[in-house]
């Protein structure tokens, strides 16, 4: 393989003879663009964008989170849910739904993930302007597969995890972790370029915004 490597690199160098040898390789990051675009209060904007994507959204006070988790699972008719094993057990103190814990060491079988009624996770960051929730595989978010295979994803977002703009979100995230950016339920624009919700990922995304 090293011969192709050397060949490609040699061709690249030969193509760049116009570039002065002393031109700096590192480009200073000056960020001449905005961090965010002043579209309103973060939680309001996030809620608006999520609804625009046809996600279900509820604003909930912190002390009522367990009730709201229970109510959401009941509305959905979810009696068995996958959960990352580092999720806060208090969130489930009011629900009778059975939890199937998943972790990197003890992963659920794919078939089992395909048969649960949904998955409940926290998130790492949420971006208001674009209605985006980012999962980073942390202990309360779990392996990527658990939020992908079940058809219903209930995600708990804390107010302090919400930023206004994409640049602020990128800065909070660690690229070494596997990231999944979720902006609404799965969708396609492949038929006559119109957005239709619901293809391979969870067809229902429900978000509890905790204040």
């Amino acid at each position: 393989m090293s011969t192709s490597r050397e060949r490609v690199l040699a061709r690249v160098r030969a193509a760049l003879t116009d570039v002065p040898a002393d031109e700096p390789v590192v480009r200073p990051v000056e960020r001449p663009y905005a961090d965010s675009h002043g579209m309103g209060a973060a939680l309001e904007v996030l809620e608006d964008r999520l609804r625009d994507y046809k996600a279900l959204v509820r604003r909930v006070p912190a002390d009522r989170l367990a009730e709201e988790v229970a109510a959401a699972l009941e509305r959905r008719g979810a009696s068995t849910v996958a959960v990352p094993d580092g999720i806060d057990a208090d969130w489930f103190s009011r629900t009778e739904a059975v939890r199937r814990p998943d972790s990197r060491d003890r992963p659920l079988e794919l078939r089992e993930l395909d048969s649960v009624d949904g998955v409940v996770t926290a998130c790492a960051v949420a971006i208001a302007e674009t209605g985006t929730i980012v999962l980073d595989g942390g202990p309360d978010q779990g392996r990527r597969a658990i939020t992908l295979v079940p058809d219903y994803h209930l995600c708990v977002v804390r107010a302090d995890q919400v930023v206004d703009g994409v640049p602020q979100g990128v800065r909070r995230l660690d690229p070494a972790r596997p990231l999944t950016w979720i902006s609404g339920p799965s969708a396609t624009s492949d038929i006559e370029l119109n957005r239709v919700e619901g293809v391979h990922g969870p067809r229902t995304l429900e978000v509890l915004l905790v204040e």
């Binding site: 964008r49 994507y53 971006i127 302007e129 674009t130 209605g131 985006t132 990527r144 994409v166 690229p175 070494a176 972790r177 596997p178 990231l179 999944t180 950016w181 979720i182 902006s183 609404g184 339920p185 799965s186 969708a187 990922g201």
Partner: peptide
């Protein structure tokens, strides 16, 4: 404003 899913892996 954003596509439904973006995956990054290292």
């Amino acid at each position: 404003r954003m596509n439904p899913y973006t995956s990054t892996w290292t």
